[in-house]
Design a protein around this nucleic acid. Sequence first.
DNA 1: CTGAAAGCGCTTACAG
DNA 2: CTGAAAGCGCTTACAG
Lengths: 346, 346
Amino acid sequence: MAVTIIDVAREANVSPSTVSRVIADSPRISEQTKRRVREVMNQLGYYPNFQARNLAAKTTQTIGVIMSDSTSLAFQNPFFPEVIRGICVSAHASKYGIYFSTGGTEEEIFQEVVSMVQGKKVDGIILLYSRVGDRTMKYLKDENFPFTMVGRPYQYEDEISYIDNDNERITHEVVEYLYNLGHRKIAFIGGNLDFVVSIDRLNGYQKALEKLGLSYSEDYFIRNDVIKTNGMKAVHQLMELNEPPTAIVAHDDLVAYEVIRYLEGLSVQVPGDVSIIGFNNHALSAYVKPPLTSVDISIVELGLEATNLLLEKIQDSEAAVEHYFVPTKIIERESCKRITTKKKRE
Amino acid sequence: MAVTIIDVAREANVSPSTVSRVIADSPRISEQTKRRVREVMNQLGYYPNFQARNLAAKTTQTIGVIMSDSTSLAFQNPFFPEVIRGICVSAHASKYGIYFSTGGTEEEIFQEVVSMVQGKKVDGIILLYSRVGDRTMKYLKDENFPFTMVGRPYQYEDEISYIDNDNERITHEVVEYLYNLGHRKIAFIGGNLDFVVSIDRLNGYQKALEKLGLSYSEDYFIRNDVIKTNGMKAVHQLMELNEPPTAIVAHDDLVAYEVIRYLEGLSVQVPGDVSIIGFNNHALSAYVKPPLTSVDISIVELGLEATNLLLEKIQDSEAAVEHYFVPTKIIERESCKRITTKKKRE
DNA sequence: CTGAAAGCGCTTACAG
DNA sequence: CTGAAAGCGCTTACAG
């Protein structure tokens, strides 16, 4: 029904091959012929059939975007929309489309990736997460299929191209920031340790303590799952310690606010009694009370650069493995307070 | 290179047609043959080529998802990730994939939609917005291409299937809610009036005033663009009116918080002096101070139902045009206060 | 229940 | 600079 390359060829008195070459803007066709063929294409309302072209050319001009299962962090604001925006910008500039994974569970996602790869649905894949022991990542690596990750791979770091923040360093800086405000008792509320980002941030926290001569205590570390299931109690226990923290680093702005609310229940003031700093710099964090000091992690760039790297890989299968860190920045607002170190010690 | 249907056929001693029918699980093939062919497929690691299958079958098994340009509301949390989640659930259940638009400007988006339709990239399209005078919507309708919208179309309402909230009604209810708390001076901060959702909410506000015997005043209506560019001043003017409002309805939780911040600058307490209610029930709104009363609009359902409707349309081109409203609910928190109507009037 | 053949709408060596 | 031909990997009437 639709007008095909054959119709155009007939109408323009050339062969289908020629029409095909005009579409591709091949230099081997004379300007005159091109002009004539293009005129006919417009006249007939011709559009190349995507599937047919891809089948013949053995390409798809689309990249697959995979996020971790929907129950996890990835679906929270604002990471997801922003990273997608970055991907869109880069993909659009190179005339690539985006095919989106729809799977729910880890297993479904894995199966979907396999079918994307084997079924030749996409030219390359972006993994929007990095999880410990991830089968999908391993598969992609073993298949030698073009892919990049947003997040440092937990393994094979030298064989996989990825974009990330320097999570260890920035968390280190966050702790130092609090230290410089006079804090010595600094608690940490981590993310899901199945994800490398959470591990790196925890490492940064621990190393900073060490470097600053503060000792690490299990009591000062709350895992994200206990915040989720039993946050109120965990925060109460934290504040009932003999030496309750004067500052808290939270893995995400959302959990920071959750904690602030529990603190309120205990009549603990932020930042009066306890300073708190979050990660990810949510849109709301500027407006909320107290405006939250938070680490901006350049989410759009994360998506943008991951896509650029993938596109390089697709276009040149010999392209070197590359890693980038995208900038992070502590956005100071009003949830952290300078204290004079007059308490117990010293 | 990859193993094809031919390889499987040869190995299983059947024709390619038979293999194809086994893939489709056609009832016309004996169980015995199916078993044998499937065994060979596993053994050889066969996966059907997506493009080839689609080209031959004249289908794509994928739906296109289009959002409004990235500068607008759609990219704000939490609408975007949640609506996508809804779409994914439904698409995945029906084994459809998702092709995502990457365009930046309105024109780019339009071109992309045309190429999706004409290039046979997708079987149907979901428009994640409804804009006044939208060329893309008109095009889809005129082409008679299967599509649905999240949001009431500004035109051709009887010819287009869509899912929406009953925005007029819920805004009406919101005003009544405030009225029942004793408020008589209720201001409204609207969204971008290029979008139908904003128009409907404004209408609901105005009709509620009318029904409740309150008069509508231009002074009580702030357009979203002035909030964006000159919000502080607009809020100041609002509060310096002879009869400043005692309650404010904000088109979105984000703008509600922005307003609250400006109010603070004027030492106006929320909800002490002014009550405020938002829309969209952001994830943070529960945690923030004051916890914001907000209208939950069931975003996931919006995506889910729009996809279901589209799938019906795709599978049956004669399917009737349908509309659904997805439930809305006022989530009461702490930003609205009952007042005793003792001020000036009466 | 199964197969031979045509066809989906392109691209790309190969030849001139 | 252009064309004829083969092929990409499937599906689907048609025939038996």
